[in-house]
Design a protein around this nucleic acid. Structure first.
Lengths: 146, 146
DNA sequence: TATTGTTATACTCTATAACTATA
DNA sequence: TATAGTTATAGAGTATAACAATA
């Protein structure tokens, strides 16, 4: 293993640990206590990418179609999504986020940002440290982007 | 809101998004498919901090005592933890990780690191970029540390 | 025949309430 | 009386298998 392979692996381990701990901490914050992570992830996907079929949502969330049917049932009962039959292909069901669903996601993201801002502000990060975090965020997004 | 408050909030939003996406992606990798995130988190806690009571584990994982009893039942049946009565206070049950449990956690963390190294190596990060990621990891750990 | 979605069934993780044993 | 843990029960999220409707 070369010196730079070693540096890459050490960096990966550091980043993996820090990422899991921070995500775990922030995940507690949500607008509605009854909202699960799974439901929130579906709403966030619909909010960002727009109308999707059950199968497309299942693939994106890496769950089975029956699981997604069940989750959409729950979200529909709570009024956060709506089903519309696809007239062009009548096997399909199009799932949309409602205004209420949009607002719940927005509130949750705001609350997580508030929590993180609160935790960060106690540490009085310098401008350089904030820049390091922003630069790292951009690098992390390149890692996960397809 | 001052200019630096604004920078803090923008940084927090960037970091929150990058952290959730990366954690979500890495969470898929685990040594045993039958192992849930919840079980893995309990094992990782026992591995890092040693023997704990049911109540202490429940508090740390932010679940109720009955939930933790049930999770420990599952882990015990799989041979990843062991229960020992506390002779000093016989209401208590001490939970330990077994060698098999230790190995499962180690394998999962290795697999996640392998996955992350694989994703990162395709991007050919420079030494400076790796340093940015390591520095940011240290800052993120300061944010979550108590 | 293949695809889309649903229903049926079962297991895990979660909760609250009620219980036993011990301090 | 308070604490530690378990059992009973219920709801959500997950899976696989079997099914109906449509392409």
């Amino acid at each position: 293993m070369s010196a730079s392979d070693e540096a890459l692996r050490l960096t990966a381990t550091d980043l993996r640990m820090a990422t899991f701990r921070l995500a775990r901490r922030l995940r507690c914050a949500r607008a509605v206590d009854a909202m699960s992570d799974a439901q929130l992830a579906v709403l966030a996907t619909l909010r960002m990418h727009g109308t999707r079929t059950i199968t497309a949502l299942a693939e994106r969330e890496r769950v089975t179609a029956p699981s997604m049917t069940s989750m959409i049932n729950g979200l529909e009962e709570q009024g956060y999504v709506r089903r519309t039959p696809d007239e062009a292909d009548r096997r399909r069901v199009l799932v949309d986020i409602t205004d209420a669903g949009d607002e719940i996601v927005a509130q949750t993201l705001r609350q997580r940002d508030d929590l993180l801002v609160g935790m960060m502000s106690e540490l009085h990060f310098t401008d350089d440290e904030l820049k390091t975090l922003r630069d790292a965020s951009a690098l992390m997004r390149r890692v996960v982007e397809p």
